[in-house]
């Protein structure tokens, strides 16, 4: 491992007594084998950290900006109410906001909203902007065509048989994930749950892994991300043909048992 071209090394080794030369050679013979995927995994984590930093905190998350925006909106509302021609528009706006905040008050005159299962692309699509969970997550039950056939005015969609990605072996996966739980965090009793979002390709291999909900501990999050790369799935299928899909998976790390497991009932597919 030492540099044979370094003149200091040649001089140095020659100055050692024979027994220390032997020890020097023995220590130099130790080969350190790095896990092949460690470098790429770490680079992925660094890239994600850099990307997050490059994006920076959105302006709206800064308290003084929020205060300013709230004051501006209040000012506009007061001005709007005081002008007769704009009053109706302001009341309409207030009603719209109230409907969003207290939907049960307005439920009786609201029309049923049509929900159609989204059709996923073959290639990984960019994750959609955060929306209410019910709109984004299509559970297996929601994915049936019952919703569609209950709307008589719409053309009947052809029946699509869909399966969702399944982890090939949950036991093995749990063991593998446990091996990524940092020992010192276990010893320190640091536990946590992380929700990850990633694309499972047609071969069942995770790609484009992103943190959906952090555990609050960066090292636990990274442990989960590293473990996720090594998960293997039966891919999702559509009419028997393997397709890629986004999935959300919860990872739980429990310090008492030292075992990191996947919540068995918490894997959702986002298609």
């Amino acid at each position: 491992m030492t540099n044979p071209n370094d003149p200091h090394d040649a001089d140095f080794r020659a100055t050692l007594p024979a027994d220390l030369q032997a020890l020097d050679r023995e220590l130099s013979g130790i080969r350190i084998e790095e896990r092949p995927s460690f470098g790429p995994e770490l680079k992925g984590e660094l890239t994600q950290a850099w990307r997050t930093r490059a994006r920076g905190a959105p302006m709206a998350s800064r308290p003084w900006v929020r205060t300013l925006m709230a004051a501006g909106l209040a000012g506009l509302m007061i001005a709007g109410v005081s002008v007769p021609s704009a009053r109706a528009a302001v009341f309409q706006l207030v009603r719209t906001v109230a409907e969003e905040v207290f939907p049960t008050f307005f439920a009786q005159d609201a029309e049923p909203e049509l929900q159609l299962p989204e059709i996923e692309a073959q290639e990984p699509a960019p994750p959609v902007a955060p929306r209410p969970r019910a709109e984004v997550v299509v559970s297996p039950a929601d994915a049936s065509n019952e919703v569609v056939t209950s709307m008589p005015d719409l053309p009947t969609l052809p029946f699509v048989e869909t399966t969702f990605p399944e982890i090939i072996s949950r036991q093995e996966a749990a063991r593998m994930i446990a091996s990524y739980y940092p020992l010192e965090l276990q010893e320190a009793g640091v536990e946590g749950a992380i929700k990850l979002l990633f694309w499972v390709d047609t071969h069942g291999i995770p790609e484009n892994i992103q943190t959906r909900e952090s555990s609050g501990n960066q090292r636990l999050d990274y442990a989960a991300m590293r473990a996720a790369r090594n998960l293997r799935f039966h891919p999702a299928t559509r009419n028997g043909v393997a397709v890629g899909t986004w999935v959300e998976v919860d990872f739980h790390f429990f310090a008492l048992t030292g075992v990191g497991i996947i919540g068995s009932d918490s894997m959702d597919s986002v298609m």
Binding site: M1, T2, N3, N5, D6, H8, D9, F12, L27, S28
Partner: peptide, 9 residues
């Protein structure tokens, strides 16, 4: 020396 593989320099 033996981990990073550095020469004396």
């Amino acid at each position: 020396r033996y981990g990073a593989g550095f020469g004396n320099r």
